[in-house]
């Protein structure tokens, strides 16, 4: 029997009826058409599908969509402000923090979760926070540098009073 799922995704309120066993990534991709969130391992082991649930990074393949009921989700589509990229996106772009780009959405969302909690993480703290996010292309160093760069950009933005 379908159940009601009422939640906010990227600032937009949705009211859906879904099968209770549906996982969050299915709803985001297949119901809402938010294809920026990627499905790769379907077993919670690669983190490509990471989104923010009330500000915390979660693997959307491994939680039920109904666990997001009444909560707020942020996906990669909600990062930019119109055509203005989020500092994390700018930093990933400028630091070549991706090659194929398939794990990138998950990496950036986790980076946002991390930087919201810890605005100035050291290299080792980033390694620890990003540990589960598999990437086969970059060797991770450029991602780490991008996150350090994003932290600086966010800091500057805050100092200029334009923090998002």
């Amino acid at each position: 029997m379908k159940k009601e799922l009422k939640f906010v995704v990227n600032g937009q309120t949705y009211d859906l009826w879904i099968e209770p066993k549906t996982v969050l990534v299915q709803v985001l991709r297949d119901e809402l058409g938010l294809k920026g969130t990627k499905r790769s391992c379907d077993s919670g082991s690669c983190c490509a599908c990471t989104v923010l649930l009330n500000g915390k990074a979660v693997k959307s393949c491994s939680i039920l969509a109904l666990q997001a009921n009444g909560k707020e989700i942020l996906t990669v589509e909600g990062l930019a402000n119109g055509t203005q990229l989020h500092p994390i996106q700018e930093a990933f772009l400028d630091n070549w923090a991706f090659q194929c780009g398939f794990c990138t959405s998950g990496q950036m969302m986790a980076a946002k979760g991390l930087l919201d909690e810890n605005p100035d993480p050291a290299r080792e703290e980033i390694q620890l926070a990003m540990d589960g996010h598999l990437c086969r292309c970059t060797g991770y160093n450029m991602i780490n540098e991008a996150i350090q760069d994003a932290a600086k950009r966010l800091q500057t933005q805050e100092e200029q009073g334009g923090a998002k």
Binding site: R29, K35, K38, V76, Q89, E90, L93, F102, M108
Partner: peptide, 19 residues
Amino acid sequence: APRVDAPAKATGRAIFVDD
């Protein structure tokens, strides 16, 4: 130079076959 596909990949707009 930045990657030519960077804007698409940084915004989740790069379309892979499963999309």
